[in-house]
């Protein structure tokens, strides 16, 4: 299985990085026989043992036929990638534009694509939801949300 090989590789790289980063912690061992590095070192060793277990599992499963690829698997890369980028833009504009405007734009985009054609429902949700939640959280619950370019 390709995915499992990648997981094994990433685990080993991660263990190496973590050991290296643990070495970088300056230590002053006063009154604490172990210091801040000991527990992380144990975790690093644990990660190596996990890598070994992963290898054992892959070895045991070597004769199993890989599951047939799901139909339309390209689709999910595109959807996940697209939604992730759109969400990143939402978060990027969260403070400059403010919660209300950023959320209206975000919701218009996503509902417009995933709930196609239902314009009335999409537009009214995209506007009413951010305004309502903004007022509820900032005025009612005292949770501060980004105000952005709007005056309130």
């Amino acid at each position: 299985m390709m995915a499992d090989r990648i997981i094994l590789g990433v685990t080993l790289v991660l263990a190496a990085l973590y050991f290296w980063a643990t070495q970088q912690i300056p230590s002053l061992e006063i009154g604490d026989p172990l210091g801040p590095k000991a527990f992380p070192r144990l975790l690093g060793i644990g990660l190596l043992l996990t890598a070994a277990l992963l290898a054992v599992e892959m070895w045991k499963a070597r004769h199993e036929k890989p599951a047939p690829a799901e139909p339309g698997s390209m689709v999910h890369y595109l959807v996940v990638g697209g939604v992730a980028v759109w969400t990143w833009l939402y978060f990027y504009s969260f403070e400059p534009l403010g919660f209300i405007i950023a959320t209206v734009l975000y919701l218009l985009g996503l509902t417009g694509y995933f709930n196609r054609g239902k314009w009335i429902a999409n537009v009214s949700t995209a506007i009413l939801f951010p305004v309502f939640t903004y007022l509820m959280f900032t005025k009612g619950l005292g949770v501060s949300l980004a105000r952005g370019v709007l005056p309130f």
Binding site: T103, Y106, L110, T125, L145
Partner: peptide
């Protein structure tokens, strides 16, 4: 509720929680 509306709303709620 159409899930095409529900799921985007969940992201916004998550954003409120995380930013809050």
């Amino acid at each position: 509720i159409p899930i095409g509306i529900l799921y985007p709303l969940i992201v916004s709620i998550a954003a409120i929680g995380a930013y809050g």
